[in-house]
Amino acid sequence: MSELSCSQKADIFSLLGRIFIAELDRESLLALQEPQISSVFEKLQTGCKDYLLNTSWDDEQIELLASEYCHLFILPKKSGLSLQASHWMTKDEASHLAQLETIISHLDTSVVNYDAGNLPGDHLGVLLYFLSAVYHSEDKEIQKLGNSLAAISLLPWIARFNEKLSQSSSNPVYLASGKLLLQILDYKEP
């Protein structure tokens, strides 16, 4: 069996970036319903496949899902689930991460879906898309930096974030996504 390529890693980070950067829309849900994706999500979180495939994704359900995202991540006072790394990191770690944010702020955005300028540089969705861009690079030297950058920008806090997520939400997609994030960060080629 072949190794997980940088391009595949990039796409997984991109998928996770999409899930965390904003509320899920109908197109995203359709993609998640793809059998190969939903079966992996089911393995991560029992009931996820059923949730994705058997929920009637009408406007009301989409709105409910958006509302849930909002309560979990945008108004995090209640859930305590900030998507910003600086919320979880020590002062030192956060101040160091600010250097990375500066680098990110100078990168070219490719798609207009989400305006990076309106999101903080340490937002989980931005960081995940950034890692995706690193792995998507054609420059192998840049690709090699992916693991270190993931370790610095995500590892110090993502386990605590995920722990909190598991306490605050029972949405199978978010729970599966949190676990997927932890496992992709921990993924090592045999």
């Binding site: 069996m1 072949s2 997980l4 390529s5 391009s7 595949q8 890693k9 990039a10 796409d11 997984i12 991109s14 998928l15 970036g17 999409r18 950067i21 197109e27 995203s28 359709l30 993609a31 998640l32 793809e34 190969q36 994706i37 079966s39 992996v40 393995k43 990110i104 990168l107 070219d108 955005t109 490719s110 798609v111 879906n113 989400y114 990076a116 969705g125 931005v126 898309y129 950034f130 995706s132 861009a133 690193v134 998507h136 690079s137 054609e138 420059d139 840049i142 997927l180 496992q183 992709i184 993924y187 080629e189 045999p190």
Partner: peptide, 29 residues
């Protein structure tokens, strides 16, 4: 490992069709 490959593969193939994994940033260079 097989699950990761399955997921990665599905996304790579499906990117163009569903647009889900469309990146926010251009690949770094």
């Amino acid at each position: 490992r097989r699950d990761f490959l399955k997921l990665g593969g599905a996304l790579t193939i499906g990117v163009a069709s569903v647009g889900l994994a469309a990146p926010l940033f251009r690949p770094l260079s």
